[in-house]
Structures are given as structure tokens and as C-alpha cells.
């Protein structure tokens, strides 16, 4: 089993519903976020292109945050999901420095926090909060090992890219372009 996400940049409008849904679902303190939205504008008026991306932890296959964690708080569970165990975390911030995606933040309670792919929902057969709320249905979540999952199907039929592939982290968020 390998959980992953495909996000269609052609449909995303950058409304940030994914961000607020995550904050509400996961009790992310006000002022912090586990996912966020970026916009890249390319070209000169009137020859322009915009790419809007909903970003989060890439749950990398080769996760530098897990390798550098001195206490083992950052770890990988079934499905390749990268998690942080708060009471093992000493808040040293090494993982924050090592992440090429800026996906982690220091929680006011003193530990590091990040996206969990809403594993608590996934275990109940639900999609992560961000995916389930998205008005444009631009996000697909599922098991890459299952060729019939939404995410496998989208990756099979569409062109995609990952972020910072040069970092060698083998990210598992795929942006359909």
C-alpha cells in the first residue's frame, strides 16, 4: 500500500478551502497551517499563465525529515505516511530545516506538526479533509499500489510533475498539469 495524492492544477482555483478544512479537522492552532496554497504567474501581460497549487507534506519515499530526526519522533507508518509522535518530539527543528517543501512547523505546544494525510479519516474509509471538501474536486487521494484508485487513474492518464524532484526525496504529491 502506498498512499498518494494527485492535484489537478487545471481545476484548482486557489480558494483555500483545503486549508481551512484541515485547520478545523485537525485542530491546527489559528495562525498555523498544515497545507497552503501557492500561485505562480508566468509571462508578461497579456501572455500569461498561472499555476495554482495546494501544497502540503509530500510524504516522501526518501524522507529527509525521518532520517535526521534524533529521537525517532518522525517516522513512517503503513502506506508510506510520514507522521510525528508529539511526545517523542523534542522540538529541535532539524526536520524543519531538512524539508525542501517547508511542510513542517513548530506547534505552540512544543512539538513539530505537519500533514498526516488525515490518517484518522482514511482508516475509516474517508478521504483526507482537504480532498473531501474541495469544491472543484481537484484533489484525488488513494493507494498507488491499486491501479483502480483515483490517484493511480489520474496519474496514468494525465501529465504530472512533482515538486523539487532534484532533492531526491521521491515525493508522493503529484501535480496534474
Amino acid at each position: 500500500m502506498r498512499y498518494a495524492m494527485a492535484i489537478d492544477t487545471k481545476k484548482c482555483v486557489g480558494c483555500s478551502d483545503c486549508v481551512v478544512a484541515c485547520q478545523v479537522e485537525n485542530n491546527v492552532p489559528v495562525g498555523y497551517c498544515r497545507d497552503w496554497v501557492t500561485e505562480t504567474v508566468d509571462g508578461t501581460y497579456p501572455s500569461l499563465e498561472i499555476e495554482i497549487r495546494s501544497e502540503r507534506c509530500n510524504h516522501c519515499d526518501n524522507a529527509p525529515c525521518v532520517r535526521c530526526c534524533p529521537t525517532g519522533a518522525s517516522h513512517i507508518v503503513e502506506g508510506g505516511v510520514v507522521l510525528v509522535t508529539p511526545n517523542k518530539c523534542i522540538g529541535c527543528g532539524a526536520c524543519i530545516q531538512s524539508c525542501p517543501y517547508d511542510a513542517r512547523y513548530s506547534h505552540p505546544d512544543g512539538h513539530v506538526d505537519k500533514c498526516t494525510f488525515c490518517l484518522h479519516r482514511v482508516k475509516k474509509g474517508q478521504d483526507p479533509a482537504c480532498v473531501s471538501v474541495c469544491p472543484t474536486k481537484c484533489m484525488y487521494f488513494g493507494d498507488l499500489d491499486n491501479p483502480n484508485s483515483d490517484v493511480s487513474k489520474m496519474i496514468a492518464k494525465r501529465k504530472y510533475k512533482t515538486l523539487a524532484p532534484e532533492a531526491g526525496t521521491k515525493p508522493q504529491i503529484f501535480y496534474l498539469i
Partner: peptide, 25 residues
């Protein structure tokens, strides 16, 4: 290319954000 984070609430900005949280809490 111009790039911007629509939500400037990533941890880079957290110092000022934390002050704010104290108020609203």
C-alpha cells in the same frame, strides 16, 4: 516569474503570528 504564497501563514512568519495568538486566545 512571480511567485507568491496566497497564505502567508507558513512558519517563517510564525513569530509575529504567535503574538497574535496570545491575544485571540
Amino acid at each position: 516569474m512571480e511567485s507568491c504564497t496566497l497564505l502567508n501563514i507558513k512558519y517563517k512568519h510564525m513569530k509575529t503570528r504567535r503574538d497574535f495568538i496570545k491575544i485571540s486566545a
